[in-house]
Design a binder for these strands. Structure first.
Lengths: 203, 203
DNA sequence: ACATTTGCCGACATCCATGTCGGTTAAAGT
DNA sequence: ACTTTAACCGACATGGATGTCGGCAAATGT
């Protein structure tokens, strides 16, 4: 666990940051229900009851961390995709940005994408909202390209295809976590071969 | 909950079947940790302690249900894919078979694919084994098609691409569960447009 | 008919998690 | 300096879940 040999007191926001970091790490690795506030507190180097000085409940803590990390994802990817250039380059850069995020913040990726703990109604709602905004953003990004293969952007089926792409890329990111020796560029290339070229087209 | 106006006793296997059915339903909808043995027992129309007459622990119960449903998946898909014919038809039939399974046994799909409850080491191991066998089966199925777009079947990257396909199709299946008015054939067609044709190829 | 098996359950022991309260004391404010 | 704020924590109350034990009684066998 985190050590605090200096027994001086922290300021509120500093402790809060430690707590959210610990919560991110533990929620992402073991899931919501399997993680206790006591564990998070220990990881953050504080007594369990300190948690309640910063968050009213375990659920609100999870929700806060999710919102925070989703903002980080949006910011990370948004800053990296190239808005101009040919469609192929735009798509490649988006895929690369997502894999970059998965690489630099693996815990955040797990927390945001692994479908888990949907038993709680409020958590489910927030997750759904995050997913929908993601889907719409990507749909807007790929609109014209999908029309080119006969999937009309307005139609519901377009949403399904976007969902396939997003979930699929995340599946590849999960695989990457289990096989870290693979290079990011190989991964991007493989994904492009599949999603852009298509399995039906020989070199 | 399940009603049993006749208060006659069941035979062992019959009760066991009720229990596994209830466990499948609840584990799939609320997740492992959020489901108690008491709920499962109630759903199966028996007292909580009856569970221990059939399964030594909650964990073993989950493991049993997972193995059982995975066997059902393998059998369902295996019975439906056409082994012969052009590659495009083979792939289409496989996708259609998977969506068919998702449609006819939604709870099983959720239990097997939703990445959840990986905190327990034994559960994690079993999940991993199931996923790997799935991946290898699909990789064998698509070997030659992937070579055609420059992804060599032996290379690790091929595994990542297969993982992308599988996870992506499951993501589409999840979307379908939320949008059930879409027809299965549209879904199959959309997936084929993306995975077989590729976004880079106009009509 | 009677004995044996076995499906079924109530009561108990144990553990662990969440959330509350009030006190203590380091640090900030003036 | 000395007052006030607020970071920190120990102890408690409560609730819920897992797993055990022993007994009752319906099916079943002979």
């Amino acid at each position: 666990m985190a050590e605090d040999a200096p027994k001086s007191r922290m300021r509120g926001p500093a402790r809060k940051a430690l707590i959210t970091a610990a919560a991110l790490k533990l929620f992402a690795s073991k899931g919501y229900h399997a993680t206790s506030l006591a564990e998070i507190a220990a990881e953050a180097g504080a007594a369990r009851t300190v948690m309640y000085d910063h968050f009213p409940s375990k659920r609100v803590l999870l929700l806060s961390v999710m919102q925070e990390q989703n903002a980080a994802l949006v910011e990370y990817v948004g800053a990296r995709i190239t808005a101009s250039g040919p469609p192929e380059d735009r798509m490649r850069s988006t895929i690369d940005a997502y894999f970059g995020f998965a690489q630099s913040k693996p815990a955040a990726r797990r927390l945001l994408f692994d479908r888990t703990d949907e038993d709680d109604p409020e958590i489910r709602t927030v997750r759904q909202g995050i997913r929908e905004s993601r889907t719409h953003a990507v749909a807007a990004l790929l609109g014209t390209d999908m029309r080119a293969v006969g999937v009309l952007p307005g139609e519901p089926i377009a949403e399904a295809v976007v969902e396939l792409i997003i979930t699929g890329l995340d599946g590849a990111a999960q695989w990457w976590e289990r096989n870290p020796e693979t290079s990011r560029s190989s991964l991007v290339e493989g994904a492009m071969r599949l999603l852009w070229t298509g399995l039906g087209h020989a070199r």
